[in-house]
Simulated scan of single mutants.
Amino acid sequence: MSDTARYIGPTGIDPIVNKIANLLPRLGISIMGSRQLAVRGRKSGEWRTAMVNVLTGDDGVRYLVAPRGHTQWVRNLRVAGSGELRLGRKVESFTATEVPDHAKIPVLRRYLEKWGWEVGKFFEGLDKNATDDELVAIASGFPVFRLV
């Protein structure tokens, strides 16, 4: 499988954990910056949701990183170009621009620094101490979006 087709679906107890994790932002509970992402489906046009970690970069810019690869929310966001971040009753609309592979390195490193304990298993053995070359080698498999 090429990195541009990389997708790691839920297995084992992941679906149960995902249901609980998705419930928390709906209740207004954020764990380390988590939000419920809502994006219009690329075929149905209906709202689709997923729990995401919103990363704030050193420059104050916010990003969404897809540690599982080219997921349905990634594919929907590419088509829609916008969505909502929800936490309880608070709804924040945004537009998104996909970050090119060569510009992902500092974002991926910061993401691993903050959430490596949670998502490290999806990063092919890499952690916050990975070299730039190692991160460049995997960058195409990890979509990143800049939020405005």
Rank of each mutant, 00 (worst) to 15 (best):
K19F: 14
G83H: 00
M51S: 10
V136H: 08
V136K: 10
V91K: 07
D101M: 01
G60P: 11
G12H: 12
T71H: 11
F145P: 01
R68F: 12
P106C: 15
L24S: 05
P143D: 10
I13D: 15
P67F: 07
P10Y: 10
F122V: 05
R86S: 03
I31N: 11
V39G: 05
V91I: 10
W47R: 14
A66L: 03
E84R: 08
L87N: 08
V79Q: 05
R75C: 00
Y111M: 03
D3F: 06
F94E: 00
L87E: 01
R42S: 12
R89F: 04
S140K: 07
R26K: 14
H102R: 12
P100Q: 06
G141W: 00
S82N: 13
G120F: 01
L108V: 04
V91P: 00
D132A: 14
L23A: 13
G116V: 00
R89Y: 03
P10A: 07
T71M: 10
T11G: 15
G141T: 02
Q72A: 15
R68K: 10
R48P: 07
N129E: 11
R78L: 00
S140L: 00
Y7A: 12
Y7L: 15
V99Y: 04
N76V: 04
D133G: 10
H70E: 11
Q36P: 07
T49D: 15
P106D: 15
I29E: 12
N53P: 09
H102D: 15
W115R: 09
E84N: 01
E124P: 03
R48A: 12
P10W: 08
L24K: 04
Y7H: 12
F94L: 05
Y111A: 08
R40V: 03
K114D: 04
G57M: 09
G81C: 10
K114F: 08
R68P: 09
P25S: 06
T71E: 11
S30H: 09
W73K: 04
F142V: 11
W117F: 03
R26S: 11
G69Q: 09
V119I: 11
G45F: 14
L23W: 14
N76H: 08
Q36L: 15
A66D: 10
V17K: 08
G125C: 10
N22W: 03
F145N: 05
E46Y: 12
W117C: 05
R89Q: 06
G116C: 02
R109F: 08
E134P: 03
V119N: 06
I105F: 07
G9Y: 11
G9D: 13
A139T: 03
E113Q: 13
G57C: 10
V54P: 04
R146H: 11
L24G: 08
H70T: 08
R6Q: 02
A80V: 05
D133E: 13
R75P: 07
D14P: 09
G83R: 03
N129W: 02
S140P: 01
V119C: 06
K19Y: 14
W117D: 04
G116I: 06
R68Y: 09
P15C: 13
T97N: 11
W73V: 00
G83M: 03
N53E: 14
L126G: 07
L64Y: 10
N22Y: 01
G120T: 02
L135E: 04
A137F: 03
L126P: 06
L64M: 02
A103H: 13
V79A: 01
G9T: 03
F145E: 01
A103E: 15
T4M: 02
F145H: 02
S34Y: 02
R26M: 09
A137Y: 01
R86F: 11
P106K: 12
F123P: 05
